[in-house]
Design a binder for these strands. Structure first.
Length: 271
DNA sequence: AACATTTCCAACCGCGCGGAT
DNA sequence: GATCCGCGCGGTTGGAAATGT
């Protein structure tokens, strides 16, 4: 028996989201919270599949998302986590607050992979490519080798120190290739992370990072402390009416600013 | 300027898992 | 145990934007 489609395919819109749709979804989730995704399109007045709504929210609209390219230190963390976890992007993303699995996966495929290859590291096994080539010479074909890599990928090495070391050595030994403007910072960051047992266990353990805790937001004086999403949503919608910048930019942290950016952008696009 | 090619990333698709019935 | 259902994951794709010729 085949699986039933996740939604009624007829009348379900696909493709890029419009500002209006974004606004509907944001407003709905801010006012009602994340409930059963299957019901969201209907309740929010969207002609979208619930799955598509979830994806749009988690990958693009979520207020706690960071924008822009991954920093050098984030990249370094992704590389090390990938060496330990393989292609488990959601697990990797869970260790980088504000980043989504999709974002990390895309960044890996478009940037990090190439960087690693350029530095002589196999992005799949995290082993030096020269060694891979030596192995290839003794084995029968590259295809077999790559399929072996795939297998390794599903059973990532427990220890990635050699890979990490070789990456670090490679970065430092080829300054022209090291595009970091924060010389040595990723390595230092990683070392300090390793030294901080608590933090490391959080980063590498099974504990999920905390969701956005609205009660801990540092809000401007003219805003009350929120105890629920409803309160928060009401206030945010008020902010929309005034425009973000009327509230004074300096008093918001990244999380709040990203909410405003999203709301303001969608609002402008609508006008 | 016009066209071709490449890069990048948002969005889709299919599958597996776990909980409910 | 079988089936249904909802969710989340990882791989893949389509097309816009950037870059090259």
């Amino acid at each position: 028996m085949g699986r039933q489609p996740c939604c009624d395919k007829l009348g379900v819109k696909k493709g890029p989201w419009t500002a209006e749709e974004d606004n509907k979804l944001i407003n709905f989730i801010l006012t009602s919270g994340q409930c059963c995704w299957r019901a969201v399109p209907k309740l929010a007045g969207l002609r979208r599949c619930g799955k598509s709504c979830r994806l749009r929210w988690t990958n693009y609209l979520r207020p706690d998302l960071k924008r822009g390219l991954l920093t050098e230190s984030e990249e370094q963390l992704v590389i090390d986590l990938h060496a330990r976890l393989g292609n488990r992007w959601s697990k990797i993303a869970a260790r980088l607050p504000g980043r989504t699995d999709n974002e990390i996966k895309n960044h890996w495929n478009t940037h990090i992979k190439k960087k690693l290859i350029k530095r002589g590291i196999d992005p799949v096994t995290h082993e030096p490519l020269q060694k891979e080539q030596r192995d290839t010479e003794t084995s029968s074909s590259p295809e077999e080798n790559s399929s072996q890599s795939e297998i390794n990928n599903h059973s990532p090495p427990v220890e990635s120190t050699s890979a990490t070391r070789s990456f670090e050595e490679n970065s430092s030994s080829s300054p022209h290739e090291n595009c970091s403007t924060l010389s040595g910072e990723p390595e230092k960051l990683f070392e300090s992370l390793c030294e901080d047992e608590k933090l490391l266990s959080y980063l590498l353990g099974d504990n999920e990072p905390p969701l956005v805790d609205i009660t801990s937001w540092e809000l401007p004086n003219n805003a009350q402390n929120f105890t629920s999403w409803d309160d928060c949503a009401t206030w945010l919608l008020d902010c929309q009416d005034f425009g973000v910048h009327d509230f004074g930019l300096d008093c918001f942290n990244e999380v709040e600013m990203s909410i405003f950016d999203t709301l303001e952008t969608t609002n402008k696009q609508q006008k």
